[in-house]
Computed example of a mutant assay.
Amino acid sequence: MKKTFGAILTILGIIGIIWGAYAFMMGGDGGVLGKWSALVPFGVGLIFFSSGIGLVKTIKDQT
C-alpha cells in the first residue's frame, strides 16, 4: 500500500516538474508575476517527487 502511494506521489511529482518547466519556458501564466508563477507547480512537483522517492526507498519488500 505504501509503495503504491509512493509510486503515485513520484508520478505526480514528475508531472508537476514537467508542467512547471514547460510553463516557465512558455512565459508563465501571463499574470503579474509572469514566469515566477510557473515555479509553484515546479516546487510542488519537486516536493511530491522527493517524498515519493523517499517513501519507496524506505519501505522494505515483504516476500
Rank of each mutant, 00 (worst) to 15 (best):
V56W: 00
F42L: 11
G45I: 00
V40I: 05
A21D: 15
F5C: 06
G20F: 00
S50P: 03
G52I: 00
I14S: 12
A7E: 12
G28H: 07
K57P: 01
I59R: 01
F48K: 02
L33R: 14
I59V: 12
G45C: 08
G54C: 14
I53C: 07
Q62F: 03
K3F: 06
I47T: 10
S50D: 05
Q62D: 13
A7L: 11
A21H: 08
G27A: 13
S50Y: 07
V32Q: 05
P41F: 15
S37W: 08
I59M: 03
I53N: 02
K60C: 08
K2H: 08
G52V: 06
M1Y: 11
L46V: 10
I17S: 05
V44P: 04
W19N: 07
A7Q: 02
W19G: 05
I18C: 11
P41G: 04
T10D: 00
T58N: 06
F48G: 00
L46C: 03
I53L: 07
L33M: 08
G34V: 09
F24W: 11
G45A: 07
I15A: 15
V56Q: 05
G13V: 06
G45D: 05
T4L: 15
D29H: 15
I18D: 10
L12Q: 09
M26Y: 04
G20L: 02
F5T: 14
